[in-house]
């Protein structure tokens, strides 16, 4: 070992440590991604290795058949839900960074839904939304609001709202924790100075809090957007995409596994990938513009 120069030793150690994560990353991230792109140019059915190169046919089909993009309409529900979720989480974050009694307990309570696995969450909400035995309808019955009882999953006008609510309920805690982190990094003397100058609570929020967490806020909004585009687990586990709840990813999965068209499904996944990358680029441009 001693004969090696310092530089060589350094290289050896660097490579030694890096090789494992890089190999894992290449095997489980980049190789599948490259295959995905390759499959998107073929007519692979998912069984065996027989496939024909079809060029851009799959992409042509995606962009010429409006049905494929109609599913994005359902993603919009999750985006709107996400906006409400960001607003709510900010509200809770502000309340729970103040000197409220039992604030740690509340933080844990609001964060817990995020820790639950989606499958568990959905099974739980099945019991909430069930028409006969569901706790929501039982509650409405008990407090005398029978007329408000709904078929939460059967009514085509309500079902996407019901589902988007689950997603909101689940992810709000995470947003809140991130906001709390950002809020705690604001120096308290700013608020003290504001109080001395006679600023009201709203003014402090508007002119001190918001500008200080602006970058986190815009990051949150973009994450909401990409999250909404990728909405999958909740509509799929709850409804299998039935009753007009199929999102873009649900449709991709159906295309692959129900209609045995892995080629087309890969192309759909690539299109989604491009859309998401597009938004990430925008996010970088917006977020880091000021820092330069």
């Amino acid at each position: 070992m001693n004969q090696l120069s310092y530089k060589a030793q350094r290289r050896l150690i660097l490579f030694g440590f890096l090789i494992v994560p890089v190999a894992l990353c290449l095997t489980f991230s980049y190789y599948p991604a490259a295959s995905l792109i390759y499959y998107s140019f073929t007519d692979w059915t998912g069984t065996g290795w027989d496939m024909n190169w079809v060029g851009l046919d799959n992409y042509k089909q995606i962009f010429t058949e409006p049905e494929v993009f109609l599913a994005l309409k359902n993603n919009a529900y999750y985006f709107v839900g996400g906006l409400i979720q960001v607003a709510l989480s900010l509200w809770f974050a502000v309340i729970l960074t103040s000197r409220l009694k039992g604030r740690y307990g509340f933080r844990v309570m609001l964060f817990l839904p995020y820790v639950l696995h989606s499958v568990a969450t959905v099974i739980m909400f099945k019991n909430v939304y069930h028409l006969d035995y569901g706790s929501l309808n039982s509650l409405l019955r008990t407090i005398g609001l029978e007329s408000w009882q709904q078929s939460w999953l059967g009514n085509p006008h309500l079902v996407n709202v019901s589902l988007a609510f689950i997603s909101m309920w689940k992810y709000m805690g995470l947003n809140m924790v991130i906001f709390i982190g950002a809020l705690q990094s604001i120096p308290s003397d700013l608020y003290e100075a504001g109080s001395i100058d006679g600023a009201s609570g709203w003014q402090k929020f508007r002119y001190i809090t918001v500008p200080s967490i602006k970058s986190v806020l815009s990051l949150m909004l973009l994450l909401t957007l990409t999250g909404a585009l990728e909405a999958f687990d909740i509509p799929y586990i709850m409804m299998l995409g039935a009753n007009g709840t199929s999102t873009f990813v649900v449709q991709t999965v159906d295309t692959a596994f129900k209609y045995q068209s892995f080629g087309l499904a890969s192309a759909m996944a690539v299109v989604l990938l491009i859309i998401v990358i597009f938004f990430i680029i925008i996010q970088r441009k917006v977020l880091f513009r000021e820092e330069r």
């Binding site: 991230s29 599948p32 991604a33 995905l36 989606s118 499958v119 990409t226 990728e230 999958f232 687990d233 799929y236 586990i237 990813v249 991709t252 999965v253 996944a269 989604l272 990938l273 998401v276 990358i277």
Partner: peptide
């Protein structure tokens, strides 16, 4: 780059 893959994997797992 990783996130959509994660989604696809989650999709397959679910």
């Amino acid at each position: 780059m990783k996130k959509p893959l994660l989604v696809t994997m989650t999709a397959v797992l679910s």
